[in-house]
Design a binder for these strands. Structure first.
Lengths: 200, 200, 200, 200
DNA sequence: ATTTAATCGAGACGGTACGTCATGTCTTCGG
DNA sequence: CCGAAGACATGACGTACCGTCTCGATTAAAT
């Protein structure tokens, strides 16, 4: 009965007094998988543990909260990405980064996970900190793009880069969480252009 | 013991088969107070009821969910604002609206309450809907300003106004909730200018 | 699925803010039934609650521990008994009381329940107190029989009645819990006679 | 932090592939100490291991269960006794054995330990078996005394000796565990006399 | 004037998830 | 190869909120 859900392929070998890497993997995988399946609701610590074929205690031993598990699972997945392209043209780079951000957050397993993560972080200060650190790397990547553009003279020297970054991520999170507007490629293009050209 | 916290001044007179306005007030007041106080803890239905000296059923009779109570409590307080100025100059109007938004959300009772409300909305879909409706009026006011500007020719005709609105509120919520950047008058000015002039 | 076990016959009507007597009954009945079935092992709070069709909290609201539930269930069952016969002859009375004690504790639902109760009381001081009070009434009944006998001159005036009582209940509990000797009617007779006649 | 309690004096030298006697001692000592100290709390395997500065496995390698450790710890201490005197007079012998039993169980280190042990045995069937075996020697000693008395004609030939033994140990355990009556020398005398002379 | 009906405070209820604890098994690694 | 260390799966524990329910009282409206 339990196996029908977990499908971990049977017994994991014990690893003695060292952390069992296979268990870690099973937990992270199960967490991400459940998030993708269940649209974010009802992803319980117990559910994750059962799906991973793991005791709850093992989960609590290594992560402070359910959200921390999700975050690590997600961070792993997102490690590879972080494009930070360098075409030599700010407009192109900006469009690419923004579009990649928008697209990346909506692929099946990531979207619900990210949303759930935000929900959890809203209540769990510890997780909020972790998440802030995680997103920081994304912000840094975007800031690099802008800095390169400024050095090439594509931006006014006095421009507030942090504000520009926040305009991108602000729009992203705002629409991502509320869902009242699109986060498609056209929007990405329009947003990038707005930052560079403004509204005149 | 209960009175030490609620301080409703003792017994409320019954109002027979008509809704007891005093109870409604007590609930909203208690809700707002708790929203402001509870920095990290979650605001419980039971807590609100107890603080208001009210049965839980009274709460559920008049509001569909805990979130609805919280939102109404906050909305009452925020009723006044929604400036939507009309100086005849888009830049001035925009700066004014953005600055007012930034400032309004940080006044002592509103700031923490709004933050807690956002936290609650992250978990309570019903509240999320209500909050969306509530913020819609703010967005509409900003959109009006932009539309007037466009009609005066101060914006390119093809500009995506909704995106501009979301840039403002996106930045606002992003910084408001994460607290990693300022929401002062300079920022308001810079943001407004960015929307109009862009970064070249 | 749940109903297959609980068999409470469907929904219990709510009783508002007053304790639900039906729920109390269901809990006590379920507790005793499960004890009888499961030989005492694995009678979990959760199991009792589920079998009674009740939330765990309801159980904890009214009893301090699982053992307290069992005790109350058992005390109810034992209420009627408490023989304390009065044939006018001490030997007859004593034999009757002892035999009744032995027999009563071994009837299907009572035996395992009593054993489990003792197990629980070994760890739960609160329950130990309750149990002491419960058994006190049994001791008192036996003491009454002895006192009547002494008044009739069937016992030496200086005899330590409390010790006699403890000889009866000591043997009872000792054999009941360890199970190394019989607690049948012959034993009862022999024990009663031993107390009166001694070993010469 | 762990050492503050164990205070085993620091590192024990390893003994290679032979059983480490020092570890055995540390475990038994820790067990006895904890049995004596822990008045209400239960004595945990982990607690013993930590207090002895020992891994849990070392414990399970040499003893089948926690209870076995506790019992062995106690048995060692109680080795000496088992008097079984032979004055040639049953009454004297009986009084001596009973008084010794009562007194022995109340000496400072043994009393609380024995009580805790009984508590543990109530939950641990394995320990219960071991304890039964352990107490069997005590029962045998008493039975010997009685048998010698019977052979000397001081007891009716048909007397149920096992029942007499259980009257002694029944009273002992009953009062020892519940503490509602004294276990002093007078009681011992009265109990011995009761067994021989009875109550007329 | 009496009945009817709705509100109110109170809090019990069934339920879901939580995070902790103890058990007994297992494996690593230093000596 | 022993012994320490401690990770692991299991399963019970007791707590926190949720949203629903039923009281008994109180009082306004309908009769």
């Amino acid at each position: 009965m339990a196996d029908s859900e977990s499908d971990t392929g049977g017994a994991r070998p014990h690893t003695g007094r060292r952390r069992n890497e296979a268990a870690r993997r099973a937990i992270l995988d199960a967490a991400l998988r459940l998030l993708g399946e269940a649209e974010g609701d009802s992803v319980t610590v117990e559910t994750i543990a059962r799906a991973a074929g793991v005791g709850k205690q093992t989960l609590y031993r290594w992560w402070p909260s359910k959200g921390a598990v999700l975050l690590e699972a997600l961070a792993e997945r997102a490690q590879q990405a972080v494009p930070a392209p360098d075409h030599g043209d700010l407009r192109d780079d900006l469009r690419a980064v923004v579009a990649a951000t928008f697209a990346g957050a909506q692929r099946p397993p990531v979207g619900p996970a990210l949303r759930t993560l935000a929900r959890e972080a809203a209540r769990d200060p510890q997780l909020a900190v972790l998440m802030r650190e995680f997103t920081e790397s994304r912000r840094a990547a975007l800031r690099d793009v802008l800095e390169r553009g400024r050095e090439r003279g594509e931006l006014e020297p006095g421009r507030d880069l942090d504000l520009m970054v926040d305009q991108v991520y602000g729009v992203f999170w705002y629409r991502f969480l509320l869902g009242h507007g699109p986060l498609d490629e056209d929007t990405a293009k329009a947003l990038a252009d707005s930052l560079l050209t403004g509204g005149r």
